[in-house]
Design a protein around this nucleic acid. Structure first.
Ligand SMILES: Nc1ccn([C@H]2C[C@H](O)[C@@H](COP(=O)(O)OP(=O)(O)OP(=O)(O)O)O2)c(=O)n1
Ligand SMILES: [Mg+2]
Ligand SMILES: [Mg+2]
Length: 847
DNA sequence: ATCCTCCCCTAC
DNA sequence: TAAGGTAGGGGAGGAT
């Protein structure tokens, strides 16, 4: 066993780094200025007999044939292959091992519930010592491919796409005779051949790897019920409470069965934790077994190069090297505090612990998937932005499929771009990405999605953000995170549907969540939260709570009441038999202004008129709410004349409409009447956002200014503030309710108090919506509605119409909604056209 | 303090 | 020719 250790140390020492791409690329940059344009059609047939016997590669042939089309195109790239992505993944070894875990999950779905087993805390207690086994197949890809070729067992063999001694294809795996020559995974085949001219190259056989991996895991699961899969050829077993068995005996049995079943050898490491078990496996390789008892941990680690520790790659190794630290023994000389200062808290901890053989991780704790993505950083060459967009769409499709495959949807989308560094020439590696800047942008969606259209819209938006020359793009990736279970999501979505909302009977009891805090703060002051809707955290289920009794007059928040739209106020006033207006008269000196809160500047009223006449041709169906709308409009119009002058008189020094200053976007009236803590929030927020004339600490000044223009009701929904992502997110989280609010507004039978509460919620929610240059909240809201359309168009066209009518109605009252309506209308039209081949307007009239 | 975004690092 | 993917952990720095 000790000579095993020597071997391990030596090979670990050799294993400096082969993958030092950046330096590599820079170094060869000038050398390789060969234009990849018109590729030599001369197919190079210099493949060994072994290689030729392999299954032909149709993609290569196709793409070679296809390259006559593009004059300036590189021979083989995104430019020349219509099915590039699909084909690429079929031949990518890294894609194979990267996606293997998901296939494993599906194949052994039951093996995940081992986390909730008896294990619980037995490992957490220090007294109980555990036994971990780590199993790893020897030179897996090679072993599988030559398992029926005993004649090659002692010859140097490697797996690679190319057998050219000048090729830049990468060695995927090399057997141990080949490693004796210095051949390693990740090397270019030309370098491997230089080190070992007699190296025999085999092509990949992914099906066989999959098959052997299945056998491998069948065996492991048979011998142990606590199995943590690391990769297709590697796993941890926790055999702590595996009763009577001697772990070494168990290990031998497993190794033997693996060899008998697969014809491939595996090595095993046994130790008290995962770290040392893995270290033991390295020592055991190839085809061996190594047990590191607790008392010998120090001895094994002392001279072990730090690079041999899992978690220390070439960057950390180099950093440590500059500190004269090469071995774990040397690493132990550094204090934990010092390591944490140099490498960060967690990394410092890890270095300190691992150098002492300490590892508290437990086997089998299955963490749910946190992200799903797809990326391609090879063969990516674009001539223009359309190429890039097309490629992006393919990535979206890929990600959509994978999300679906995982039964999951993402609420956060990240786009990654590899951008050619300006200093970098043509990559050393054929069709490689070379020396690149890695860029990424992400956005959080109103609701989780796996819809390819949504992904595409988002991806394009993110892409636009980069402002990048398409020719500089060397790689792209799309990733979804903040995942939610798709079934829960869909169920939630059903629950959020307008129909189910309308049908649902009132249910008492609901869970409050952070997302509703803001609204609740308003409601709690009004006592008007007789209707509340929240999306409860776990199930996405919408719970509704209604109270039949009205709050007492004295419980109402005057400020909020005043900020309500006139028609809403009238309803509430009716509910209180007209006492509300009396209350206001008593409490407010300027109550005579109250009737004026409904006034609109003439220009806005004109816009509304235009819009309305446009709609009239479409909206033939009279409904109860139409009356209300007319009433509201008449009211608005009658009041609009006096107001126009006041608004135009420029009482607000900052309402210069040409200036997009934040203050000009704040409706002073709303500001004035918001509850105190909300107002403070907003002012704080404004202060934080690049607005010089709001930097003053004197709140009362702004308050006064606000009061002077307090009658402009239509400005209410223009209260847009800065860019607080938290609010966007919180609002987005409750946005399912937004559509319910639409529905409630639409429901003519909705009792007044509920109507007003809903509208109040909506208004207070909207008034907190941020909107800056990037219009995050605005697009968030639009995106929500578009997603909604995309989903609903499949099953429920009527709901689509309902939603559209609601939006249209709201757009007549609010400039914000007018903008939203304009933004989403094309999506409605496209959806209807796509799914029903009809014209949206006609459909509306028909209905 | 805790979160989020945009990275970098690591492993297979 | 060649198929440099995938996912989690974590850090820096800024916003809340
Ligand atoms: N840079 C790499 C590393 C690994 N692999 C693939 C091929 C390997 O066969 C397989 C398993 O990886 P291992 O690290 O276990 O390497 P091997 O099994 O090949 O060799 P060892 O005997 O060291 O485990 O993953 C790869 O394609 N490229
Ligand atoms: Mg292996
Ligand atoms: Mg392995």
């Amino acid at each position: 066993m000790s000579n095993d250790l020597e071997i391990a140390l030596r090979s670990a020492d050799d294993a400096t780094t082969y993958l030092m791409d950046d330096e590599h690329e820079v170094e060869f940059e000038e050398n390789g200025c060969n234009e990849p344009s018109h590729a030599q059609v001369s197919s190079c047939p210099a493949l060994t007999s072994v290689f030729d016997n392999s299954v032909a590669n149709p993609v290569t042939v196709d793409s070679l044939n296809a390259k006559t089309t593009e004059p300036a195109s590189r021979g083989h790239s995104t430019l020349s292959d219509a099915n590039f992505v699909e084909n690429y993944f079929k031949f990518s070894r890294l894609h194979f091992i990267g996606t293997w875990r998901n296939r494993y999950r599906k194949r052994f779905p039951n093996s995940h519930d081992c986390s909730k087993d008896k294990n619980s805390s037995h490992n957490g207690s220090v007294s109980q010592r555990s036994t971990i086994i780590h199993v790893d197949m020897d030179c897996f890809f090679v072993a599988v491919v030559i398992r029926n070729r005993p004649d090659l067992k002692d010859k140097p063999v490697a797996i690679c796409h190319s057998d050219s001694s000048r090729g830049t294809a990468e060695i995927s795996s090399a057997n141990y005779p080949a490693r004796d020559h210095g051949v390693k995974a990740g090397m270019f085949v030309r370098d491997a051949k230089a080190l070992c001219p007699e190296l025999v190259i085999f092509p990949y056989n992914f099906d066989a790897y999959e098959e052997v991996a299945d056998q491998f895991y069948d065996i492991l699961h048979k011998h142990c019920n606590k199995v943590q899969a690391v990769s297709c050829d590697e796993a941890f077993l926790d055999v702590s409470d595996s009763a009577v068995e001697d772990p070494s005996f168990l290990a031998s049995a497993i190794r033997k069965e693996i060899l008998d079943t697969t014809g491939c050898t595996a090595s095993v490491g046994i130790a008290g934790n995962m770290l040392m078990a893995r270290v033991a496996t390295r020592i055991a390789k190839p085809d061996g077994c190594c047990f590191i008892p607790l008392e010998r941990v120090d001895r094994y680690l002392h001279d072990l190069p730090v690079k041999a520790l899992p978690g220390i790659g070439h960057v950390l190794d180099e950093k440590l090297r500059t500190m004269q630290i090469r071995t774990c023994g040397q690493l132990r000389m550094i204090s934990k505090e010092s390591l944490q200062k140099d490498f960060g808290i967690k990394t410092g901890d890890m270095l300190w612990n691992f150098s002492r053989g300490i590892d508290s991780r437990m086997v089998g704790v299955i963490q749910e998937t946190k992200s799903v993505g797809a990326e391609v950083n090879w063969g990516v060459r674009f001539n223009d932005l359309n190429d890039a967009k097309d490629f992006l769409l393919k990535l979206c499709k890929e990600v959509s499929l994978r999300l679906e495959g995982c039964g999951v949807q993402g609420r956060n989308i990240t786009l990654k771009i590899k951008k050619r560094r300006s200093s970098a020439g043509e990559p050393v590696k054929f069709m490689g990405c070379g020396d690149c800047e890695n860029l990424s942008r992400s956005t959080t969606l109103p609701m989780a999605t796996d819809d390819v259209h949504v992904l595409q819209r988002i991806a394009n938006k993110l892409f636009g953000y980069f402002q990048i020359d398409a020719k500089d793009i060397r790689g792209m990736g799309l990733q979804a995170s903040k995942l939610e279970a798709a079934d829960t999501n869909r169920r939630g979505h059903e629950k959020c549907s307008i129909r189910s909302w309308l049908v649902s009977s009132g249910r008492k009891g609901f869970t409050n969540t952070d997302s509703c805090k803001l609204r609740d703060r308003v409601n709690s002051r009004t006592g008007l939260d007789s209707v509340s809707m929240v999306q409860s955290e776990g199930s996405g289920e919408v719970a509704v709570s209604r109270e039949a009794t009205l709050p007492g007059l004295d419980e109402l928040d005057i400020g909020v009441i005043e900020s309500l739209p006139p028609e809403v106020f009238r309803e509430i006033n009716d509910l209180y038999s007209g006492e509300l207006i009396n209350l206001l008269s008593k409490n407010k000196q300027n109550n005579k202004d109250f009737g004026m809160t409904s006034m609109v500047p003439q220009n806005i009223a004109d816009v509304m008129d235009e819009e309305r006449s446009a709609f009239e041709t479409l909206d033939k169906i009279p409904c109860d709410e139409e009356d209300e709308y007319v009433n509201g409009k008449a009211h608005l119009k009658s009041a609009s004349i006096g107001e126009a002058s006041s608004s135009a008189s420029g009482l607000l020094p900052t309402t210069d409409s040409l200036m997009p200053s934040s203050l000009s976007q704040v409706d002073p009236f709303v500001l004035q009447h918001l509850p105190e803590e909300l107002r403070v929030d907003i002012l704080e927020s404004l202060r934080a956002h690049r607005n010089p004339h709001l930097m003053s600490n004197d709140v009362s000044v702004k308050y006064d200014v606000a009061q002077t223009a307090s009658e402009d009701f239509m400005m209410k929904n223009e209260l847009w503030i800065g860019n607080p992502p938290k609010w966007v997110d919180n609002f987005a989280r409750s946005s399912c309710s937004l559509l319910n609010i639409f529905a409630e507004l639409h429901n003519s039978s909705c009792p007044g108090s509920q109507f007003s509460s809903l509208l109040q919620s909506l208004v207070s929610g909207l008034s907190l919506l941020p909107s800056d240059g990037q219009d995050d909240a605005f697009s968030s809201l639009c995106e929500l509605i578009k997603q909604y359309v995309d989903v609903k168009i499949e099953t429920d066209i009527e709901e689509i119409y309902t939603c559209l009518r609601l939006l249209r109605r709201l757009s007549l009252r609010s400039k914000l909604f007018l903008r939203i309506y304009d933004n989403v209308l094309p999506r409605f039209q496209a959806a209807v056209c796509e799914h029903y081949g009809g014209n949206l307007n006609i459909c509306l009239m028909d209905e």
